[in-house]
Design a protein around this nucleic acid. Structure first.
Length: 515
RNA sequence: GGCCCCGUCGUCUAGUGGCCUAGGACACGGCCCUUUCAAGGCCGCGACACGGGUUCGAAUCCCGUCGGGGUCACCA
């Protein structure tokens, strides 16, 4: 039985890099009918707030990445919070002390710092070897009982650790460059490197699929497995995700740089943030940063598109496939086809994919999907009656392929739900043009006489008008569009007029004449 | 600095010695379609980091150089 895990720390948001790693774990597990475990790495008590876990779980749920064991679902290896598993780490460390695989170390920070500097000066690896390395186990235990201190793992001498990585290949490291790593702090708390080993072993994890930055730590972890007498799992280190158009890691520490004025403007435009929020406040919203999943959710991306995109980032099915439905991805995902080199996150390709997924979505689903975003923007009320739903359906239909993400409905169709906001540029270009007022007067009559007030009826009448008067259809439509919608872009004019209805259209034309 | 990993169009990738004058996708440019904007169709731009080998033949194998990243914590 294949078992994998993902161990996020509760940061308050689901980072894109992490999602990609988690997705690879999940795909691999589902492909092989295994079990996927979510374990919460909450040992950093200062940084972790309990409520900071929720957004992460919600993010996974939204994407459809479900876990077989972990928070809220439980499992036979509970608890799934590392802060609650401390005794396991202590026991394991004590056992290592007793079996002669570990020893207490009383070196001060200053002494260690000096050692490190010497090593650097000598251009050698810094490898710490404590004075109690060769002290007898019983004596080590006694020493530690007498005065609790740091416990170090004893790296065997003259030995080569071999990590047979499923993505990176065989990596060999000699123990003479591996220091005796601290596994337990002086206050008794375990270090990450040790806690993961103990947990992964206790949870019977067979495949450790994690980010590349852990590759260098793996040899010392392998040593820990061996000292503990545990079977060593298979490792697969997936390359990091780089920032857009860059070779730098998409770092959690540099998230603010993605909150550009454009991004902030976009969040405002779709009402993803309170209107009264300042730019600075928005910039600090880690939960809405473009490096997080929630950002794309707030913009109305389809989760399936995100999954497809991240699945394709660093992994490929063949030489052609871009749109890969989930079932196909699960059926074909394999670590052999994961690229060993880093991949940059490309928001533009993601948007394209989002559009492709939106296009495939049935109209009913689009309508349901768009409603919360219309509501958030204050364009529809809490309850949607049949007439409103029907109107939304017409609007979404008229938007057609323009709708790539749900919030696009705001850009292309807001004027269907409120009075037009006249764009000065559009007014200048279309309504202030010579002949425009006369054209609008002509249109009033034409629109008045249109019956039924449908797109096809309007189209034939307007085309007829153009022919008789020797005007270009484009010129008429531009004026009509700006007069009734306030802007220069949007769905087809005929469809738009029909959706607005005769009465509303005439009102708007009248208003436009007065500008 | 030591150690480890990586290096094909701007980006995601195909490629495992001959099918490669390197294929696909996003982006970009042009044209067509067209009532705007999207979408669509066609065309185009554009890469094997560099230098040595091995071989009849190398993007693919070996060595070196350069470049990028990671890691060397009582962080995760």
């Amino acid at each position: 039985m294949i078992r994998t895990r993902f161990a996020p720390s509760p940061t308050g948001y689901l980072h894109i890099g992490g999602v990609r790693t988690a997705l690879f774990n999940w795909l691999f597990t589902r492909r092989h009918g295994g079990q996927f475990v979510l374990r919460i790495d909450d040992t950093d008590a200062v940084r972790n707030r309990p409520e900071a876990l929720k957004p992460i779980l919600e993010g996974f749920r939204w994407l459809g990445i479900n876990w077989d064991e972990g928070p809220e679902v439980g499992g036979s290896c509970a608890p799934y919070f590392q802060a609650q598993r401390q005794s396991l780490y202590t026991d394991a460390a004590l056992r290592l002390l007793e079996t002669g695989h570990a020893y207490p170390c009383y070196r001060t920070k200053e002494e260690l710092e000096a050692e490190r500097k010497d090593a650097e000066k000598a251009k050698k690896s810094y490898v710490h070897r404590g004075e109690h390395r060769n002290t007898r186990p019983a004596e080590c235990v006694r020493l530690h009982k007498e005065r609790a201190t740091v416990i170090r793992l004893k790296a065997p001498e003259d030995y080569t650790v071999v990590v047979d990585d499923l993505i990176c290949g065989k990596v060999e490291v000699r123990t003479d460059v591996i220091g005796d790593a601290v596994i337990l702090r002086a206050d008794g708390r375990a270090l990450y490197n040790f806690a993961t080993v103990v947990d992964d072993a206790a949870m019977n994890i067979t495949h450790v699929i994690r980010a590349k930055e852990h590759l260098s730590n793996t040899p010392v972890q392998v040593l820990a497995y061996q000292a503990l007498g545990y079977p060593v799992p298979k490792f697969a280190h997936v390359p990091v995700v780089n920032a857009p158009k860059s070779k730098d890691k998409l770092s959690k520490r540099k998230m603010k740089q993605f909150m550009t004025p454009e991004v902030i403007a976009q969040l405002r435009a779709v009402h993803a943030v309170p209107t009264e929020a300042s730019d600075e406040e928005i910039k600090n919203r880690e939960d809405l940063n473009p490096a997080t999943v929630a950002f794309y959710q707030a913009l109305g991306y389809l989760p399936a598109a995100l999954v497809n995109y991240f699945g394709r980032l660093g992994w490929s099915l063949d030489d052609k496939a871009e749109i890969i439905p989930l079932d196909q991805m699960i059926a074909n995902f394999g670590l052999e086809r994961v690229n060993a080199s880093p991949a940059s996150f490309d928001p533009e390709k993601l948007l394209w994919l989002a559009g492709e997924y939106m296009r495939m979505l049935p109209l009913v689903d689009k309508v349901n999907g768009v409603i919360p975003f219309l509501r958030r923007a204050g364009l529809v009320g809490d309850t949607i009656d049949e007439a409103t739903r029907s109107k939304i359906r017409q609007v979404v239909d008229a938007c057609g392929d323009r709708l790539k993400i749900y919030t696009d409905v705001l850009q292309y169709g807001a004027f269907f739900f409120r009075d037009p906001v006249y764009d000065p540029q559009a007014v200048q270009k279309r309504l202030k043009k010579e002949g425009a007022p006369q054209l609008l007067r002509d249109m009033e009559g034409l629109l008045q006489g249109a019956d039924p007030f449908t797109a096809t009826q309007l189209e034939s009448r307007i085309k007829d008008f153009c022919e008789k008067n020797g005007v270009k259809l484009g010129d008429v439509n531009h004026v009509l569009r700006v007069a009734t919608t306030g802007v220069m872009i949007g769905p087809g004019v005929f469809e738009s007029l029909a959706i607005l209805g005769k009465e509303e259209v005439l009102t708007r034309v009248k208003t436009a004449k007065g500008i």
